[in-house]
Amino acid sequence: MSYVTPLQLAEKPGARELAQVASTEHRAVVDAELMDRTLRGGDRSSYDADDMASADAALARITQVIVETDELMDGYLAARLSLPLASVPLTLTRVARAVVRYELHKDRVTDAKTDPIARDYYDALRLLDAIRDGKVTLGVSDPSSADSPALDVRIESGRKTFGGDELRGFR
């Protein structure tokens, strides 16, 4: 199970940005509407075969970056969590989205102080470090919380050590 899907990427950062960064170099950028339909699995019949091939190539590049991001995140998370996860917490989807977005911007000259894409990427890596080290949980949906025993306090009454019969001798 991937931490982020093409459909989630279509929502944010959006098809226009993805088309700009995932299109084949030295070729026309894939039309944003076609890229959106490709990411969402929508109807593309109104486009010609060359345009659809370009959109498919862009989707293949995005999918490859998603796979690489999944492997990176698994490397961090395997130290603390049992993988694969039954469901992906929203926190991990946000982390994956930041990493995929950064990796797709391969030619971008970045400075984490001024570039939000680079800042989000470095913040995501720091969050993965903190999750791996147990400093941050994944919230209510944290799978590791199911592995740890819940605090269970039980009081059992047993035989009285000093009951009325035992104390009669002291009167």
Rank of each mutant, 00 (worst) to 15 (best):
residue 2 S to V: 02
residue 3 Y to M: 07
residue 3 Y to H: 12
residue 3 Y to F: 15
residue 3 Y to Q: 09
residue 4 V to G: 00
residue 7 L to C: 03
residue 8 Q to A: 13
residue 8 Q to E: 15
residue 9 L to V: 01
residue 11 E to D: 11
residue 13 P to G: 06
residue 18 L to C: 07
residue 18 L to D: 13
residue 18 L to H: 06
residue 19 A to G: 13
residue 19 A to W: 11
residue 20 Q to E: 08
residue 20 Q to Y: 06
residue 20 Q to L: 08
residue 22 A to W: 06
residue 25 E to L: 06
residue 25 E to V: 03
residue 26 H to Q: 10
residue 27 R to S: 09
residue 27 R to I: 02
residue 27 R to Y: 06
residue 31 D to G: 02
residue 31 D to F: 01
residue 31 D to Y: 05
residue 32 A to P: 11
residue 35 M to P: 03
residue 35 M to V: 09
residue 35 M to D: 08
residue 35 M to W: 10
residue 36 D to Q: 15
residue 36 D to A: 15
residue 37 R to F: 01
residue 42 G to E: 11
residue 44 R to F: 08
residue 44 R to V: 09
residue 46 S to N: 08
residue 47 Y to P: 03
residue 47 Y to I: 11
residue 49 A to G: 04
residue 50 D to Y: 02
residue 50 D to K: 11
residue 52 M to R: 14
residue 54 S to R: 14
residue 55 A to N: 05
residue 55 A to S: 07
residue 60 A to P: 03
residue 62 I to C: 03
residue 63 T to N: 09
residue 65 V to I: 13
residue 67 V to P: 08
residue 68 E to Y: 01
residue 68 E to P: 00
residue 69 T to A: 00
residue 72 L to H: 01
residue 74 D to I: 08
residue 77 L to I: 06
residue 77 L to C: 04
residue 79 A to L: 13
residue 79 A to F: 07
residue 81 L to F: 15
residue 84 P to M: 14
residue 85 L to H: 00
residue 86 A to M: 12
residue 87 S to W: 00
residue 87 S to R: 10
residue 89 P to Q: 09
residue 89 P to A: 10
residue 90 L to N: 02
residue 93 T to M: 00
residue 94 R to L: 04
residue 96 A to Q: 00
residue 96 A to S: 05
residue 98 A to F: 04
residue 100 V to I: 15
residue 101 R to A: 08
residue 101 R to E: 13
residue 102 Y to D: 03
residue 105 H to K: 09
residue 109 V to W: 09
residue 109 V to F: 12
residue 110 T to W: 04
residue 112 A to G: 01
residue 113 K to D: 14
residue 115 D to T: 10
residue 116 P to I: 12
residue 116 P to C: 12
residue 117 I to G: 01
residue 118 A to P: 05
residue 119 R to F: 06
residue 126 R to G: 05
residue 127 L to F: 06
residue 128 L to E: 11
residue 129 D to W: 12
residue 130 A to G: 10
residue 131 I to S: 07
residue 134 G to W: 01
residue 135 K to E: 13
residue 137 T to K: 00
residue 138 L to A: 00
residue 139 G to K: 03
residue 140 V to S: 14
residue 145 S to L: 11
residue 146 A to F: 10
residue 146 A to Q: 05
residue 147 D to A: 10
residue 147 D to S: 07
residue 148 S to K: 09
residue 149 P to W: 11
residue 149 P to R: 14
residue 152 D to C: 07
residue 152 D to N: 12
residue 155 I to C: 07
residue 159 R to W: 14
residue 159 R to C: 05
residue 163 G to S: 03
residue 164 G to D: 09
residue 167 L to M: 13
residue 168 R to A: 02
residue 168 R to D: 13
residue 169 G to I: 03
residue 170 F to S: 15
residue 171 R to E: 12
